[in-house]
Each structure stands twice: as C-alpha cells, then as structure tokens.
C-alpha cells in the first residue's frame, strides 16, 4: 500500500468486522513520531488469537487462508523504527471487551510513506458503516482535526450518514479543518 491512510482504513476495518459500535481512530504527531491508534468495543480476541495475530497464515476469515493486515502494518512500523502494540479483551472474558491497536512510525525515516488522503479514508469508513459511532482525531503540533459521528447523528436524527449529501459535507468539513491547521 502506498499511503499510510490506506493502512488506517484497512486496520479500522478489523474493528468494523469485530462488530464494534464505537470506534476511535486517532493520529498523533509529536516530534519525529506519528502514532496511530484504533480503539473499539468489538468482540475482542482470545489470547490464542492474539498470539497468532502476526502470523500471515492466520486469519479468521473463510474466503482465503492468509491475513495480511496486521503483518503489513507491523512491517511498515518496524521499517521506520517504530512498532505495533495490540491489546484485546475477548467478549467471553468481560463485558468491557474490545481491541486497541497502536502503531508508531518514524516520520523522518527514509522508508516512511506519505500519509495520503485521510479525508477519503474517513469518508470510506462512514460510507460503509453509517451506524457506527466513529470518532476521528488527528492531532498535530499545529492544531487538531476532529470529527464525531455521534455529533453529526444528533443533528441528522434518523437520516443515515452514508447519504451522498452528508458524505460530501463530511469531506468538506474535514478538508476545511486540514486547511486551517496547514495555514496555521
């Protein structure tokens, strides 16, 4: 994958498939690091699943025998002197279940790839799962971009968030927030 925003999309899809209703996607830039964290309240993973997660020949899906999402993320993070940390509580263990995936990347490393189009990634997530409460946050040293689906839903009532007019508004809103921090 050529853009970090595609990794963000791919990893966040894991939370979607875990049946989460609340998903937080956060990018935090500080010094030379970019930290990417996805937290969800999905079904979580058992210890056995967690231990096999970095093995590309492990996947829970039925349509193919390999799972490359986490191995891809780990490869890119480690290539740029970062790392991936995953913690998870399976629904059989506690009512407070879910998964937190955190990846750190070295932004100044030669193997770091461009962040790419985060606006498209957020729009794609909402388009596919209009009922999930995504909270997107991108914190930089020049300011912050934030979008909360719960806030938008409070205004819209029962109009689904994946209607084209709403996705357009979401995209424009995020673009304006990015322009504001880029001009700061």
């Amino acid at each position: 994958m050529e853009e970090l925003s595609l990794y963000v999309l791919d990893i966040t899809m894991n939370s979607v498939r875990a049946g989460a209703t609340e998903i937080s996607v956060e990018l935090r830039e500080h010094g030379r690091w970019l930290d990417f964290t996805v937290s969800d309240n999905g079904c979580g993973m058992t210890e056995e699943q967690l231990s096999r997660l970095e093995n590309p020949f492990f996947t829970t899906r039925k349509t193919r025998k390999v799972g490359l999402g986490i191995p891809f993320l780990k490869m890119l993070a480690e290539m740029t002197e970062g790392y991936v940390k995953i913690s998870s509580v399976h629904e059989s263990v506690s009512a407070d279940h879910g998964t937190v995936t955190m990846a750190r990347f070295g932004k100044d490393h030669i193997d770091f790839i461009p962040l790419g189009d985060m606006v498209e990634t957020v729009k794609t997530l909402i388009q596919g799962s209009p009922d999930i409460n995504f909270v997107f946050r991108h914190i930089t040293e020049r300011g912050e971009v934030m979008l909360s689906c719960a806030e938008i839903r409070a205004v819209l009532g029962d109009i689904p968030l994946n209607q084209p007019e709403i996705l357009l508004w979401i995209g424009e809103n995020l673009k304006e927030q990015y322009e504001a921090i880029n001009n700061a």
Partner: peptide, 13 residues
C-alpha cells in the same frame, strides 16, 4: 470489495 486485498489493489478510489 474493501478487505486488505481490495484496499491494497486500489478499491478506495
């Protein structure tokens, strides 16, 4: 299709 394979091949655009 928006799994890892789709995304990596360019499904988002």
């Amino acid at each position: 299709g928006m799994a890892t394979c789709g995304i990596a091949a360019g499904a988002r655009p």
